[in-house]
Design a binder for these strands. Sequence first.
DNA 1: TTATGAATCCATCAAATGATTGAATCGCAG
DNA 2: CTGCGATTCAATCATTTGATGGATTCATAA
Lengths: 210, 210
Amino acid sequence: MTTPLEKARKDPESMKARILTVARRIFGEYGFHGTTTRMIAQQVGIDISTLHYHWGGKKDLYEAVVVDINKDLGQQLIETEKAIHGLPLTERLEIGIDRMTDYLFANPDISNMILFRYFGKTRYEGNADFSVPEFTADIARSMGLARDKRNVPPETMMKVLAVMNSIHAFIAGENFFCPMVKVDRKRYIALVKETLKFVHIPAFTLNETR
Amino acid sequence: MTTPLEKARKDPESMKARILTVARRIFGEYGFHGTTTRMIAQQVGIDISTLHYHWGGKKDLYEAVVVDINKDLGQQLIETEKAIHGLPLTERLEIGIDRMTDYLFANPDISNMILFRYFGKTRYEGNADFSVPEFTADIARSMGLARDKRNVPPETMMKVLAVMNSIHAFIAGENFFCPMVKVDRKRYIALVKETLKFVHIPAFTLNETR
DNA sequence: TTATGAATCCATCAAATGATTGAATCGCAG
DNA sequence: CTGCGATTCAATCATTTGATGGATTCATAA
């Protein structure tokens, strides 16, 4: 059996998939309440009723976006883990940061949506949620900072969160920080990687060698 | 001459000040579009028309909140700078992080509002803005990382941004991260300070001693 | 006490917004 | 071609939401 979301992902040209893609971007930019179904429909170039026909209501579409993003991010984490498996800690961090940064700069909706979920409340009783807690524990284990993902010490969780938060913040805040630092986009991306590595790698390696 | 905002701040019991205080909290929690004037009025315990009588429209109130927060945060940065002036870099960082963390945990609206401004767009043509760029350059100078606040190198700006973003994220994300790390509020605050110092102090001191 | 202006609330409006209905259109199997 | 289900759109509805007008209350000075 295939869920509606899976069906939509199979054919990126399908109306359902096109709506989902645009919804991801707009929800990420404006948040749940800042987004109107009309904005999404207009961007896709369709009528609102077509949007409702495919996805039901605004909340349903929003929750589909959450599930979609969870899936993409989870997949990316798995691939990243494969790429760094078995390497020494410093290299794991360097390559991991590089890959995740590149991926999220190419998919800023993900960082945007996750940050909205962290900090903002919604007026409706939402059920869908991001898998950030599981992902965070997974990263800790993948980095060799914990054996069992069910039992990661709080100090380690906090350090992993610090890294992930830094990445998301620099990605989602690009439009704000880029002019502030007075560099172009390309230089900004390089600076983000540089800064992340320079700031966070010592924090993990110092801990290990003690 | 006193602006309306200054007048409101003089007497915290005045209706204008009470509305502003509640508006700060609700705008911080739900963002601009997620907040309705009725929510604010209800929390204050007044009618919507009273709110409009004192502050004009929703946008006006929102922008007053932005100005209010800029003032508070700027004042806090000045006081923090006085407290750390002349100390060695490591102590400046430790005390600075401690003070700012305590202050922002006591005023989470500030972190919430600033993050909303970083990452979220609004549908209306806003004019009010946070003074984060100036503040960031000020911090860099205060930390002795730049002589002239008009000419801070991008690498330094990025490191300062990394610190401030980390603080704001841990503050604004308390409700999300606290259960994730499975600690109570008091322990969480201690962990935040600990993590921030452990992660960021080496990044600045290593740079200096080279 | 009364007159005056400030402050507050009730009732209501106009626009925005999520959602639905029913008619038209499209694609394609028979 | 015909018929039928899937898809799309124009028109419309119901609710929410920002905002306003006017009556009422309140404080205070004369």
